[in-house]
């Protein structure tokens, strides 16, 4: 007999809470599997999750978290990973759309935006993990989703308004930068053993690359490539959803 839905949900939230609090991965898995073991036996004895952890999952998560040291190495590792990944994507996007051209303002702002975003994700996900309110969770996810777009739009606007020196890459350097970015994305994918970055990069950049070699009109190119991107995303999400459903049936 497996764990009840409530217990599984609690453990998933606990994992999210501890990960976004920067705790050590091995220690997180260790405490989760220990609680999993306890909950299994307790449920067999007719108890439920609130008998074990008390009325407030939030307080219990905080108590556990307090006894676990923050793993600076893990925090640094993930921050660096997100930073490198995001910059690789920005570089590729620039190359595909006709070459890298970055102002000093952009060079300073992008890393700051990424750092701010990592902090925001950490805070928001801890909030999501301890919130039983579905409405609030979706609102928070919406905000997290919208923030980078808003910040980048603000940066583009500011970049147009304020004049700062610009760095422009020429053809050979663009190719080298793109090659480095591709290698970084492949490297990160190998390291994390996931395909997601490579797939997203292909979905986002391949349509533009194809359009660049066609003789279509500029507006047709833009419309076609954005439709291809949306189609690619839809197909990818559909496959992820199917895979997820299959796993849930087995588990």
């Amino acid at each position: 007999m497996g764990l009840s839905v409530q217990s599984q949900e609690f453990l998933a939230n606990l994992r999210l809470y501890l990960i976004s609090s920067g705790k050590n991965e091995d220690e997180i898995e260790s405490i989760i599997s220990e609680l999993n073991d306890h909950l299994l036996q307790a449920e067999k004895a007719g108890k439920d999750v609130s008998d074990i952890i008390g009325k407030s999952p939030k307080d219990y998560m905080k108590q556990l978290s307090k006894e676990m040291p923050i793993d600076r190495k893990d925090v640094l590792k993930y921050s660096l990973m997100v930073m490198i990944g995001a910059i690789a994507f920005i570089v590729l996007g620039n190359v595909v759309r006709g070459g890298i051209e970055a102002s000093v303002l952009e060079l300073i702002s992008y890393p700051l935006i990424i750092l701010f975003y990592i902090g925001l994700i950490s805070v928001t996900f801890r909030r999501i993990a301890t919130s039983g309110n579905k409405m609030l969770v979706w609102t928070l996810l919406g905000i997290v989703g919208a923030v980078p777009t808003v910040l980048i739009l603000a940066l583009l606007f500011l970049n147009g308004a304020v004049e700062t020196p610009t760095v422009t890459f020429h053809s050979t350097w663009n190719i080298i930068a793109a090659a480095v970015a591709v290698l970084l994305i492949i490297g990160l994918s190998l390291w994390t053993r996931t395909w997601v970055m490579i797939i997203i990069a292909a979905i986002v950049f391949v349509p533009d690359l194809i359009m660049n070699v066609t003789e279509l009109e500029e507006s047709t190119k833009i419309i076609t490539s954005s439709m291809l991107i949306m189609l690619g995303m839809a197909i990818y999400l559909f496959f992820m959803w199917k895979k997820d459903k299959k796993q849930n049936v087995i588990g």
């Binding site: 220990e34 609680l35 306890h38 008998d51 219990y60 108590q63 556990l64 006894e67 676990m68 040291p69």
Partner: peptide, 15 residues
């Protein structure tokens, strides 16, 4: 004693 309350204690005792 609430069952779950032993785990934060055990974490500390291990530390």
């Amino acid at each position: 004693v609430r069952e779950g309350s032993i785990y934060p204690l055990l974490l500390r005792m291990k530390k």
